[in-house]
Computed example of a mutant assay.
Amino acid sequence: MPAAERSPYDVLGITPAATPPEVHAAYERALAEADGTAAREACTTAYLHLRNTGRRLGADILEYAAPDPASTAREAFAGVADEPFLAPEAPAPPIAALVVLRRAESAADHHEPPPTKGTFAVPTRFSPTAEVLPPVDIPH
């Protein structure tokens, strides 16, 4: 069922849980309220779909079917190509600002002795001390 076409349930003003007598009553009510030939034809078509159990199952499947993933992705990313990723007026940061490690720390890592055989030695500057713990107030 195309997306522009109304659901037979919407045309008759009922829910998918409606019983056959409720479908018939809704059809008669919608037909009485319809103004114009197109509205009457829509009511009749909806009633024919919902009266027949095979067609009703088809309408239910099409109503609640998952949307097409390709069209959904196109709609979700429709405006992405229109906006620039980076603002053109923002200058790029200098390479020196992107360096995270300091030379002294990296040099200290290279001067520490390698791990001994079979065990891994934690460098002394990374050993746990009381300085790394936050201060704690002891209640009296």
Rank of each mutant, 00 (worst) to 15 (best):
A130L: 12
E89N: 14
Y27I: 05
L101S: 05
A17G: 10
L98A: 02
H49K: 13
T129Y: 01
L48M: 14
D68I: 11
G36C: 07
P69Y: 08
E28D: 13
V99W: 00
V136D: 02
G54Q: 13
P114N: 09
R102V: 03
A87M: 12
I14E: 00
E63I: 06
P21I: 10
A17E: 12
G58T: 12
P128S: 14
H111I: 12
V11I: 15
R51D: 12
E22L: 08
V136E: 09
R125A: 06
P91S: 06
T53C: 11
G118V: 06
Y47L: 09
L48D: 09
N52C: 11
R6G: 03
D137Q: 11
I14A: 01
T15A: 11
E41H: 08
E89S: 14
S106H: 04
A90N: 09
L12K: 02
T119A: 08
E83Y: 07
I14W: 00
V132D: 05
E28L: 15
G36V: 07
R29P: 00
E83W: 02
C43Y: 00
Y64N: 15
P139Y: 04
P8Q: 02
A90H: 04
A97G: 07
T116P: 13
N52H: 13
T72G: 03
T129W: 02
P67V: 06
P20K: 07
E63D: 14
A121Y: 03
L62S: 14
L57W: 09
R51L: 14
S106V: 07
D10G: 11
H140A: 15
E131P: 00
D109Y: 04
E33I: 04
A108Q: 05
P115N: 13
P69M: 09
D137Y: 08
A42T: 02
P16I: 07
D137A: 15
Y64V: 11
T129D: 08
I138T: 10
P123W: 01
R6Q: 12
K117A: 15
I138P: 01
I95Y: 02
H110M: 11
A76T: 10
L101D: 06
A121K: 11
A65I: 13
L31P: 00
P91N: 03
A104V: 09
A26V: 06
E75S: 15
A4D: 13
A97K: 03
T19Y: 06
Y27S: 03
A59N: 05
P139M: 07
A81K: 10
F77M: 12
D35P: 00
